[in-house]
């Protein structure tokens, strides 16, 4: 395990912990953003350079800004308010997560690397935009198109959901408008 790997692991776990435990939502969001930035660097170290940059730009940049924006919009900076109706879930949740982690670890411990590291690295071609792009627009073209359509639908859906008139029928709207006039 190299020094980079070690530091990255520690940082990932630390920021992840902040993200799930911090009582302040803004802190949690910032922890998550940091987590994603580190994740991006890790991707690059794993010969996925393009993906790393996308991770940083899209995730740590765009998505996290969205999160923080919504947190601020809804005045939800204080994470946990009110009475927890399910107090037992705190410990049980931790237990289940731990068991899940143990299971995954056990499963992974049996796995063996199929290729020598250098061979695999050569196949990846550094994971540059050029290398990934040819695959993306080749065999995965339809998947890309589908995802594009999905993004469009999601955008429309988000707009519809947040639209202020949502929940009102056209007739009601007409009526209210008429009333104002």
């Amino acid at each position: 395990m190299s020094a980079f790997d070690f530091i990255a692991t520690v940082l990932l776990l630390f920021t992840g912990f902040i993200a799930v435990r911090s009582q302040n939502a803004v802190h949690a969001a910032l922890g998550l953003a940091a987590n994603f930035v580190v994740l991006g660097t890790v991707y690059m170290s794993l010969d996925a350079r393009f993906l790393g940059w996308v991770q940083i730009i899209v995730y740590a940049g765009a998505i996290m800004v969205l999160f923080i924006f919504v947190v601020m919009l809804l005045f939800a900076a204080r994470a946990e308010v009110g009475v927890d109706p399910l107090p037992w879930l705190k410990n049980w949740g931790a237990a289940v997560a731990a068991v899940f982690f143990a299971t995954l670890t056990y499963a992974l411990s049996a796995a063996k690397a199929p290729l020598a590291g250098t061979t695999a690295a050569a196949l990846l071609g550094g994971g540059t935009a050029k290398a990934v792009g040819s695959v993306l627009w080749g065999t995965w073209l339809y998947a890309v198109l589908l995802v594009a359509a999905l993004l469009l639908v999601a955008t429309v859906a988000a707009v519809v959901l947040v639209h202020p008139d949502q929940g009102q029928s056209r007739a009601e709207r007409e009526a209210s408008r008429g009333g104002k006039a």
């Binding site: 949740g93 289940v96 499963a107």
Partner: peptide, 19 residues
């Protein structure tokens, strides 16, 4: 969250069974 809890439990059981 309770539902999610059961989902996780079930997932754990499945993975465990598979492993």
């Amino acid at each position: 969250r309770v539902y999610a809890f059961f989902v996780v439990v079930a997932a754990t059981v499945f993975v465990l069974w598979g492993v």
